[in-house]
Computed example of a mutant assay.
Amino acid sequence: MHFQHSDQMWAEHPELAAGVVFTTGITPDADTGPPVARFGATAEARLATGSESELPEIQAWRRTFSKMGLKPTQYRCASEALLRRFRKEGALPRIHPLIDLCNAVSLAYAIPVAVFDLAEVTGSLEVRHAAGDESYLTFSGETEQPEPGEVIFADAAGRAHARRWTNRQSGRSAVRDKTATVLIVAEALHDTAADDVRELTAALADELATLWPAKPETALLSPAAARFEFPAG
Results as ranks from 00 to 15, higher is better:
Thr64Val: 12
Ala186Ile: 00
Asp7Ser: 14
Gly90Ser: 00
Ala17Arg: 04
Arg46His: 12
Leu204Pro: 07
Gln169Trp: 08
Glu229Asn: 14
Glu207Thr: 08
Leu70Phe: 12
His96Val: 00
Glu44Trp: 10
Glu199Arg: 14
Arg159Phe: 15
Arg168Ile: 13
Arg164Lys: 11
Ala194Lys: 11
Glu229Pro: 06
Thr64His: 14
Arg159Ala: 14
Pro223Glu: 04
Gly25Pro: 01
Arg87Thr: 05
Ala157Val: 04
Ala37Leu: 00
Glu147Asn: 12
Ala110Ile: 00
Thr73Ile: 02
Arg94His: 04
Ala30Ile: 04
Leu83Ile: 02
Ala17Gln: 00
Phe116Cys: 05
Ala188Asp: 13
Ile184Asp: 00
Ser173Pro: 09
Leu118Arg: 13
Trp10Pro: 03
Thr179Gln: 01
Thr201Lys: 08
Gln169Asp: 07
Ser140His: 11
Glu54Trp: 05
Trp10Asn: 02
Asp191Lys: 13
Pro231Trp: 11
Ala119Val: 02
Ser135Thr: 15
Ala131Gln: 12
Thr23Met: 03
Arg163Trp: 00
Thr218Tyr: 10
Trp212Thr: 04
Gly132Arg: 08
Thr201Cys: 08
Glu52Ala: 14
Gly25Ala: 03
Pro28Thr: 00
Phe139Ile: 11
Val151Ser: 09
Ala81Lys: 10
Phe228Thr: 01
Ser53Ala: 11
His190Val: 01
Ile152Tyr: 05
Trp61Ala: 07
Ala110His: 01
Ala209Gly: 15
Ala37Val: 00
Arg38His: 14
Ala174Trp: 08
Ala214Lys: 04
Ala78Cys: 00
Leu82Cys: 01
His2Thr: 03
Glu207Trp: 11
Ser173Leu: 10
Gly171Arg: 00
Lys178Thr: 10
Ser173Ala: 15
Arg128Gln: 15
Pro34Gln: 04
Phe86Asp: 02
Tyr136Pro: 07
Glu229Tyr: 10
Ala203Pro: 03
Thr122Phe: 09
Phe230Gln: 03
Thr64Pro: 03
Ala156Lys: 14
Lys215Gly: 02
Ser66Arg: 15
Gln4Leu: 09
Ala157Leu: 07
Leu70Asp: 03
Phe139Arg: 13
Leu183Lys: 07
Thr210Ala: 15
Leu189Glu: 04
Ala18Trp: 01
Val36Met: 01
Pro34Ile: 02
His129Leu: 12
Glu144Cys: 12
Ala202Pro: 03
Pro231Gly: 10
Asn167Thr: 10
